[in-house]
Nucleic acid binder design. Structure first.
Length: 376
DNA sequence: CAAACGTGGTC
DNA sequence: TGACCAAGTTT
């Protein structure tokens, strides 16, 4: 389907000039005061946009200041180690964002002499920068009139234009992109994008939209037809599987723990963990753990006392993770199914970047150690 | 293109 | 409690 066909189906396209005027007027007095606003530094805007992918503003705010203090320039980031980068990203999720941000910083410094792209098309060539992020940076930092179609714009414009197509489909995305691009003004495109994001975050929310406060309510077809509660439509996603998983706290005679780094091209890539893995059908936790450790590290262990159980939901599946104290029996560890491994004392654990499940195991371990000490 | 990719908060 | 959601990108 062509862009023109899409537009023909958007019967409720508002007048672009009046829509933009109402939106920007509201933005001038109601804009949120966010840490990455008020700068035109492409690096700061880029970092914020990568952090904001699928992540709420309040959460990013916790990480952004710390990041900018540690890596204030693209040169500082390019010179950093991936381990340091992941440690600062720890807990934010979607770690390929951090790996790609680091990779792209090296490209900018080493191949572009430290010069940032100026257009969305150029930005999108960098790893981790897709259509949304490229448009956001180009419009905010360089004033390019391109629509930055994020979840907020999709929701707001689906309501304003009464879009019935599910917004989480390629077709819905194409349609909404065409609508957004038809509406974005040639001046102040960055403010226009951010204004729509603010409206989406604070007024045109997924449930209970506050239409009475909305600056574009008079332009909104959904509000006119009382459809704001059943738009936008989404295609339901399937049910996610649940897995039983084990993790081993393998102690050697020196009182050190064996930790492993996850493969860089896999989920949670580059983060460290207590090794283990998914239980197979009919397998006991004990057998699962010994098998996984043999497969990933080529060593033999003895499974001991149960430490804790962690329930966790990822995007596409959930797990029940059983962590056990284990005794190192023999064999020289090898990086068979892991990127790296290390023997470390418990007080050295904080230097590594952990997935949230393993962070919970460490917290339990610390609590148990404190209890043991107070009993001495 | 569908599926993979994190986490914490909300209803 | 479980399903949904949040400034998406990559393969």
């Amino acid at each position: 389907m062509t862009a023109k066909d899409h537009m023909a189906r958007a019967e409720h396209l508002p007048n672009a000039e009046r829509f933009a005027r109402a939106l920007l007027e509201w933005y001038d007095t109601h804009r949120r005061d966010l840490p990455w606003r008020g700068t035109r530094d492409p690096y700061a805007i880029w970092v914020s946009e990568i952090m904001l992918q699928q992540t709420q503003v309040a959460r990013v705010a916790e990480y952004f200041a710390r990041w900018m203090a540690r890596f204030p320039t693209v040169q500082a980031l390019a010179e950093a180690s991936l381990d340091d980068v992941l440690k600062l990203w720890e807990g934010l999720g979607y770690y390929s964002r951090a790996r790609n941000l680091h990779k792209a910083a090296k490209v900018i410094v080493e191949e572009r002499q430290g010069r940032f792209p100026r257009t969305a098309a150029e930005w999108q060539k960098l790893p981790g920068v897709g259509p949304y992020t490229a448009a956001a940076i180009a419009s905010i930092a360089f004033g390019e009139p391109v629509a930055a179609l994020d979840g907020n714009l999709k929701r707001v414009l689906a309501r304003v234009c009464l879009v019935e197509t599910p917004i989480n489909t390629p077709e819905g995305t194409r349609l909404l992109h065409d609508i957004a691009q038809a509406l974005v003004p040639s001046q102040r495109a960055g403010d226009w994008n951010q204004a729509l994001m603010d409206v989406g975050a604070e007024i045109c929310t997924p449930r209970s939209p506050r239409c009475l406060l909305c600056p574009v309510q008079t332009h909104c077809a959904a509000a006119a037809h009382q459809r704001q509660h059943d738009l936008p439509r989404r295609r339901a996603r399937g049910k996610r599987p649940h897995y039983l998983v084990t993790a081993a706290l393998i102690w050697n005679e020196a009182g050190q723990l064996l930790i492993a780094q996850r493969p860089h091209d896999k989920m949670l890539g580059g983060l460290w963990e207590f090794p283990g893995g998914k239980c197979e059908a009919g397998e006991t936790l004990d057998a699962c753990l010994r098998r996984e450790i043999r497969e990933e590290l080529g060593i033999e262990i003895e499974v001991g006392e149960h430490l804790t159980t962690v329930e966790h939901a990822y995007t596409h599946f959930s797990i029940t993770l059983h962590a056990f104290h284990c005794r190192y029996v023999g064999g020289e560890p090898q990086a068979l199914g892991v990127a790296d491994w290390r023997w470390v004392f418990p007080d050295e654990l904080d230097a590594f970047a952990w997935p949230s499940t393993d962070a919970k195991i460490i917290a339990t371990l610390r609590a148990a150690q404190l209890t043991a000490e107070s009993e001495d």
